[in-house]
Design a protein around this nucleic acid. Structure first.
Lengths: 180, 180
DNA sequence: CTTTCAATTGAACATACGTTCAGTTAGCGT
DNA sequence: ACGCTAACTGAACGTATGTTCAATTGAAAG
């Protein structure tokens, strides 16, 4: 059911997808869905939260290098790889924020900020060590993340460039953009 | 009416806004809207197309510098300024593409590609002249645009940084990211 | 004052929505 | 074979949807 909802929300948008459409995709009547979610809004929130929690967990599983440059490269490559493997989740997590209740929004926003702070910390550490030079680490973090997430708008497996090539292209740009 | 639809679409999403809500905002009954648009879908398309046409027109009004570096700086500053002044239009143009009919989508997509091609051309010219070094100009153009458009997700007039400062921060990063 | 006409209303159309719930089903442990 | 339980159905709830259109309005033109 989550899988069906995920695909449909990503394709048509939360507001445009009815519980009956999700049910049909699952092969069940609409009423049956309410054994698994209290309502549509919570279903959306659960999908988003699961995605953000997975993102943070996947980051923690990675070994942390000891210098800022290596950590930035790891972050860059991780972000591209992780996000390109979950286009639907990413799409929803960025586009359906306005369909969350204020409380639910706060939760997701908090998780997102955690992730952004990881990159900001890397940038600050790199500045302290003299390997990076950015005028505003918070904004630089946002800029880098926006750039990397942009991959999802055009990348498709089997296209002109492989994922490894894309990673390299973006890492080159990221590295230079914050270089000392 | 366009103004009301624009605000409501940006705030709640195309699918979540009814013709009656738009009508109420205008101070009119829903039926009256159909004197100004054949249907809801066309209303959305008109808003998006107007935005993209305005974007391209505003670019043409700018004097074109003769070297690639100056043209890239002009593009960067123009993009940030133009987009930050039209948050609702930008939001809709990026988020409601999936609510367009295939034919309408093609039109908007074509306009967007025109804009992206302008940046790609600047990057290619700069590479020819040896002032830029990017491994893939098409992807570098997408990366830069994604980074710049990201400003809209957090920037607000009267925040910690002025628009001029934001321009400078991003120009620093863009310049370095494609530097030779 | 009368005619004209474009703009607007208000009701109606068929259809769809999220959600609830009494009733049916089916598979399990005993 | 029986009872239990969790899952699911199918219908119903009130409300909302995009769109149409005959009827009304109100102001400008003669």
């Amino acid at each position: 059911m989550r899988a069906a909802a995920l695909t449909l929300f990503a394709r048509h948008g939360f507001a445009a997808v009815s519980m009956r459409q999700i049910a049909k995709e699952v092969g069940v009547q609409a009423g049956a869905l309410y054994n698994y979610t209290p309502d549509k809004q919570t279903l959306l929130f659960d999908l988003m939260q699961a995605h953000m929690v997975e993102l943070l967990a996947a980051r923690e599983d990675l070994p942390e290098a000891d210098n800022a440059m290596a950590r930035l490269e790891a972050f860059t490559r991780f972000h591209i790889r992780f996000h390109s493997q979950r286009p639907d989740e990413v799409f929803i997590a960025y586009m359906e924020l306005r369909n969350l209740t204020p409380e639910n929004f706060e939760v997701i926003e908090g998780l997102r900020r955690q992730y952004e702070n990881q990159l900001e910390t890397i940038l600050r550490d790199g500045m302290r060590d003299g390997v990076f030079d950015v005028s505003d680490p918070k904004i630089a973090a946002m800029a880098v993340i926006a750039m990397l997430t942009g991959v999802n708008t055009w990348f498709q497996e089997g296209g002109r460039l492989s994922l490894a090539e894309v990673e390299q292209v973006y890492w080159d740009m990221v590295r230079k953009s914050v270089a000392a």
